[in-house]
Design a protein around this nucleic acid. Structure first.
Lengths: 339, 339
DNA sequence: CTGAAAGCGCTTACAG
DNA sequence: CTGAAAGCGCTTACAG
């Protein structure tokens, strides 16, 4: 519990000198410096984060905002969180988790008013997002993980959905699949303008056209039963479909159940591929699911670094970066079977 | 950005009066009180968390310590984290995630020295845990999620493993299973004294004896392939085993794979039951797995409440509480088949 | 019932 | 190269 005052007294120098030894913001003679350092070590001095924050107007804490009620925290979200926490700590910051309720704008205002956070990382972005506008106007440093309207005005990191869908379709097409069903998230989420769903919806349809693939899109709730229903429909009514793509992890167990019930083998009869998933999830399925895996580490490293760089006043050349998902070929996809 | 000073000036009272209106720690005449409240609202005053923390020596931040490198964060951990964050926010606190590296004691010392945290929640406890002793000696309020040596000296919340195993064995026995294989975590983890593994190891063997069940315990790494190997062995070499119990989520996909390969049906030929799992995980399996689900909300609510109660100087009657896992019967268990 | 003032442990302009 | 001092925005004993 030694304070800077104790160190100063014992070292026979002023408080400011100790402070400058620590921060390096002013030249200190080598002799005093060494002496101060020695005393600091002897007393086991650690700077008091709160006092430092009050004086310097910097807390070294950043907040990650999540709304678990709107979008439950799954493995993918968890990967984001731990990557962010790791990166923040590595750069000398703390990461706090701020789980907001329904009125997320109001919660965000509460959060920032306390002056506890140097910066904010916003996830689960809608195309028109009141929080983004407010943070911008309030002049609070923030980083978007996702994209929204006028994204070029802000700092962001996101998945490159276009490349992701292109890579996925290419992979399936090379296996001979040219009639593909795609299970997206719910229509409601699409209409709310949730970025990933909007983008994937757009690119899937565009790229199928360009690539001469017959693509049919379905919207499912985040539940196994919803996946079950749609898969039943695909198996029974759409006999030409030979591959199913999903961007809705929760439906996957239902898809397997329907296939099992209808005696359809994955991948022999129908190939299954998951988009924007966590590897840890895809590996848990039996058979393990071929996926386009979210590069969560890359994304969060970028986001946290960009935010902290700005907080520390570094030059910013970058405004945003996009990371495609990575193809992990596992056991749920195979060549289209000859009829 | 209105400060307490602005409010005081505009309301025509002293700073201390404003402060006392906010805290309620001193009687203020109804008239002044209302006036101050009115001005506060008008100026949109919010107390500055950092200044408040420095003056009051209370930051209202608690830290949750995790070591993701030792024990990757799965769905169960995630449930703990979000329950804790939710509870903390509901009580006016922030929850920060502190992910420590290999030398977790040193990291913990760093963490606490900064004076940023009012209290600490420690998870992933070993039977002999240097961090517990150190926190105790340093007189830092902390709560243990788990148990260790001399646990009655500390505050803790944990799973009631004895009841959990008892309930699980009873359930299986009532289905006619009296020859049960149990897949625990690795021998290494057991020898390191990791609480859940030590306890389940003990109770499984004790209770099987008492209940006249033939129980055989296996130790597996946290990987599908490890589950695959053991399940192959069970199927081929232990023909009398009719039920498998697991406390090692990561092995489960491997167990299913081995069953599938050996043409063993779950649950018709062998029942499968998972212990200390998250429902979200168990429901993802096909078939959905019968489990003893971790009551993560209850546990974290208890832990966070107990810690905050102590921080706020409330009387503590409770020292520790134990929560049994809850039986969720799903599709992976059935009556023992007649030979 | 209320105010003036010290103090929390730092940072940083000001002065020498 | 270094020190004395103001100030960050609060809380709380002290005084009346």
């Amino acid at each position: 519990m030694a304070s800077i005052k104790d160190v100063a007294k014992k070292a026979g120098v002023s408080i400011s000198t100790v402070s400058y030894v620590i921060s390096g913001k002013r030249k200190v003679s080598e002799k005093t410096r060494e002496n101060v350092l020695y005393v600091m070590d002897e007393l086991g001095y650690r700077s008091h984060a709160v006092a430092k924050a009050l004086a310097s107007k910097r807390t070294n804490i950043i907040a990650l905002v999540l709304s678990p009620h709107k979008r439950p925290i799954g493995i993918t979200e968890m990967d984001f969180i731990s990557a962010a926490s790791e990166r923040a700590i590595a750069r000398g910051y703390h990461l706090t988790l701020w789980t907001v309720g329904n009125d997320s704008l109001k919660d965000l205002q509460e959060l920032t008013a306390q002056g506890l956070f140097d910066g904010i990382i916003l996830m689960e972005i809608n195309d028109i997002d009141a929080r983004v506008k407010w943070l911008d106007k309030a002049n609070i440093p923030f980083e978007i993980v996702g994209r929204c309207q006028d994204i070029e005005k802000y700092y962001y990191t996101d998945i490159d959905f276009q490349t992701t869908i292109l890579d996925a379709l290419n992979y399936l097409k090379n296996l001979g699949h040219d009639n593909i069903a795609f299970i997206n998230q719910s229509k409601e989420v699409l209409e709310n303008g949730y970025g990933p769903v909007v983008k994937v919806h757009k690119y899937f349809n565009e790229l199928c056209n360009e690539m001469n693939i017959h693509g049919e899109e379905f919207f499912a709730n985040a539940s196994p039963s919803s996946g079950y229903e749609i898969m039943e429909h695909i198996i029974n009514d759409l006999k030409d479909v030979s591959a199913v793509m999903v961007m809705n992890d929760s439906t996957i167990p239902g898809i397997f159940r329907a296939a099992y019930k209808e005696m359809i083998k994955i991948p022999q009869d129908i190939s299954l591929m998951s988009l924007v998933t966590s590897s840890r999830f895809a590996e848990m399925m039996v058979p393990a699911v071929t996926e386009m895996a979210v590069p969560s580490k890359n994304i969060m490293y970028d986001a946290v670094n960009s935010l902290i760089d700005r907080l520390e006043g570094e030059e910013q050349t970058r405004h945003g970066s996009l990371w495609p998902c990575e193809l992990n070929i596992r056991k749920s996809t195979a060549e289209k079977r000859k009829k």
